[in-house]
Simulated assay, not measured.
Amino acid sequence: MIPAPSLAPAASGTTAVHASGLVKTYGTGSAQVRALDQVDIAFAKGRFTAIMGPSGSGKSTLMHCLAGLDVPTAGSVFLDGTNLGGLSDNQLTRVRRDQVGFVFQSFNLLPTLTAADNIRLPLRLAGRRPDREWWDHVIDILGLSDRLDHRPSELSGGQQQRVAVARALISRPSVIFADEPTGALDTVTGASLLAALRASVRDLGQTVVMVTHDPSAASYADEVVLLADGRVRGVLADPTPDTVLDALRGLGA
C-alpha cells in the first residue's frame, strides 16, 4: 500500500490548501452516503497534484469542499491559511473570486467577448486592473498573444482551453482547481491543456489540484492522491501512466 500523506500544519508557509477531519455525507438514515470519511490531506504550494480513484470514491466531492463550492458535514478546510468554515457567504464569495481559479470540462467562455475580455473577466468582477507584467507573462507562457482579439467561435478547442487557463491564472489565485479538464477533449487538445497547466506550475509557480480519471493526464502531475470509499489511500510520486494504472488496480478501480 502506498503511504498516505501527512497533514501539513495550518501555519506552514508551504501549504496552499489543506483539510483536517473532512467528512461529507448525503441523505439520512439507511440511505445516508458518506462521500468523505475523515480526510486529512495537504497540498503544497507550487505543485501539480492529481486526485484519482474509482467512481464514487469522493474525488469530486473533495475538490468541491477544498474550493469552497460545497460545505463539509464536519472537519475544516484552510485555503492559504484562511479557515473557509469561519466565513460568511459574502466572504466566501470573495475568497473564491480572488484566491481560487477554476478550469472545468466545458470552457465556460462568454461567446460575445474576445479572448482578452474573457481572460480579464475575473478582474473586472473584482474591480481590479490586470498587472501588465503578469498579464504579459501569462499570455506568453500560454501562447495566446496572437489570439487575444478572437472570439471563442474563432478559436480551436485547445486555444479555448488555454484561454480558460489564462482566465484562471490572471488573478494570481492561491490554487487552481481543474475538474476533469480533458474529459471532453481529443488527445492532442487535451495534451495541450495539460502542458499549459504544467507550464503554469513550472514557470509561474502556480498550485494546481486536478481531478481526473485518465492515467495519462495524471502523469503530468507531480504526484497523485488516491481515494477510495471517501478515504485517502495513498500518494503516488512522479507518476507515469503505467504506475497510475497499477495503483488504481490496487484500489479495485
Rank of each mutant, 00 (worst) to 15 (best):
M1S: 07
M1C: 01
P5E: 00
P5I: 08
A8K: 12
A8N: 07
A11V: 06
T14I: 00
T15G: 00
T15C: 13
A16I: 08
A19M: 08
A19F: 04
G21F: 04
V23D: 13
Y26D: 08
A31T: 06
Q32S: 10
V39M: 06
I41S: 09
F43W: 09
A44D: 13
A44Q: 15
K45A: 14
G46A: 12
F48T: 08
T49C: 13
A50R: 04
S57R: 02
S57T: 10
K59Y: 07
S60A: 14
T61Y: 07
M63G: 04
C65Q: 13
G68I: 06
P72D: 14
P72R: 12
T73D: 12
G75N: 12
G75Q: 11
V77S: 04
V77W: 10
L79S: 06
L79V: 09
D80T: 02
G81L: 13
G81Y: 11
N83G: 03
L84Q: 04
S88F: 12
D89A: 11
N90L: 14
L92S: 11
T93A: 15
T93Q: 15
V95L: 10
R97G: 13
D98I: 03
Q99S: 12
V100L: 07
V103R: 05
F104C: 09
Q105C: 05
Q105D: 13
L109V: 09
L109K: 01
L110C: 03
L110V: 15
A115E: 07
D117G: 00
N118W: 05
N118L: 07
P122E: 10
L123H: 06
L125E: 11
G127N: 06
R129Y: 03
P130S: 08
D131N: 14
W135R: 01
V138H: 03
V138G: 01
D140S: 14
L142A: 08
L142Q: 07
S145Y: 05
S145E: 14
R147C: 08
R147H: 13
R151N: 08
S153G: 06
S153V: 02
L155Y: 09
L155V: 00
G157C: 01
R162L: 04
V163R: 04
A166S: 09
R167V: 07
R167Y: 09
R167S: 11
L169I: 14
L169Y: 04
I170G: 03
S174C: 14
P181T: 07
G183N: 14
A184T: 11
A184G: 03
A184V: 02
A184D: 15
T187K: 14
G190N: 10
S192C: 01
S192E: 14
S192R: 12
L194T: 05
A195Q: 14
A196S: 15
R198H: 11
R198E: 11
A199P: 00
A199V: 05
R202A: 14
D203W: 08
L204G: 02
G205E: 07
Q206N: 03
T207S: 05
M210R: 00
A217F: 01
A217T: 05
A218M: 10
A218S: 05
Y220N: 07
V225I: 15
L226T: 05
L227H: 01
D229T: 02
G230F: 00
R233S: 03
R233G: 08
V235D: 00
A237L: 02
D242S: 05
G250A: 12
G250M: 04
